[in-house]
């Protein structure tokens, strides 16, 4: 993959992934709202398929490369170089496929199979961006600030990036190209939330830890402990709400709320919301429009209590 950036005028392709069209619907809806307000359109890849996340690769390397490659080939077929995804797991597996397809032998092998299945060939030339990076790169903090009509004044937000947003950089190229986030100490979410008027908490050591989502069901001890520390560290830093950028992280934390309450106590719990839900509020959308009630941690109650309509 070359480091060349796509033409600034290009509308990137959008890879929703299964979660955005399923359990992460509040993320999808609020994401489109925010992108619409900022004038950052995305063209959806129709008839996409699941990217395989971090599971398929443990059974078959080639299937785990073929799945995302088909999606990236569809994007290239639409004439787009940049592919935006909103899920950390999708960003990871799409970028990992790019890395694998850079090897000519692998590329030939995978493309032969894709052709056999009636799917287009992929040349490895797409660039993957998380929607957070995309918003920060195209609109910037200034663009976001200009769109804010209902600043999140006095709302203390913990920016939770989770794991696969930026790492590993050998796949995502985060930190290796100009204008990208910092892979070890990301700050784009901090900036965007600050631009929304929120009081972003400093000293949040859990911002890039794992939520345990990969083992959400298969290793409850680990996933509950990690989800709890995402909340607990946020609380210690003085946050009112945790902002997430990944449907798996959001769903894993919320799915564990009861177990967190049982193991660590009520005082650890905090409302959790997608960062685009918070941005939509700041852009003047209502609690209902931002779908905050969809979240099991009920950030709708919190924001209503703080005077948001």
């Amino acid at each position: 993959m070359s480091g060349a950036t796509s033409p600034p005028g290009e509308t990137p392709a959008y890879y929703p992934g299964c979660s955005m069209d399923g359990l992460g619907k509040a993320y999808e809806v609020s994401c489109q709202m925010v992108l619409g307000t900022l004038g950052l359109p995305l063209d959806r890849i129709e008839e996409y398929n699941c990217c395989g996340a971090t599971e398929v690769k443990n059974l078959s390397h080639d299937v785990s490369v073929a799945l995302p490659s088909r999606n990236l080939a569809l994007a290239r077929g639409m004439g787009r170089r940049t592919v935006v995804a909103a899920c950390n797991g999708c960003v990871y597996s799409l970028a990992r496929a790019n890395d694998a397809m850079a090897d000519p032998a692998t590329s030939a092998r995978i493309n032969a199979r894709l052709a056999e299945g009636g799917a287009p060939a992929y040349d490895g030339s797409a660039e993957i961006r998380h929607v957070l990076e995309y918003i920060r790169q195209r609109a910037g903090a200034a663009g976001v600030r200009a769109a804010v009509t209902a600043p999140l004044k006095g709302i203390r937000v913990a920016p939770y990036y989770g794991c696969l947003y930026s790492r590993p950089k050998r796949y995502t190229k985060v930190g290796l190209e100009p204008g990208r986030d910092n892979p070890e100490s990301p700050y784009f979410l901090d900036e965007l939330l600050e631009a929304c008027g929120a009081d972003v908490v400093r000293d949040y050591p859990a911002k890039t830890i794992c939520c345990g989502g990969g083992h959400a069901l298969s290793d409850l001890d680990v996933s509950v402990a990690f989800s709890a520390s995402v909340l607990n560290e946020a609380k210690r830093a003085g946050a009112d709400v945790v902002a997430t950028i990944c449907p798996l992280g959001q769903i894993n934390i919320e799915n564990n709320l009861d177990r967190i309450r049982q193991s660590f106590g009520e005082e650890v719990l905090l409302p959790v919301a997608y960062f685009t839900q918070l941005m939509a509020l700041a852009f003047g959308r209502s609690v209902r429009e931002a779908r905050l009630r969809y979240n099991f941690s009920r950030p709708d109650l919190f924001f209503r209590a703080r005077g948001f309509a």
Partner: peptide
Amino acid sequence: SPADRFDEAYTRNLLERGILDEAGLFQAFE
């Protein structure tokens, strides 16, 4: 391991239709 079983359930689920059926996976695995 449970993680091996989850990887298999996940892969089977997505190969079925191309799109993951999250609730179906949850139920089948549990």
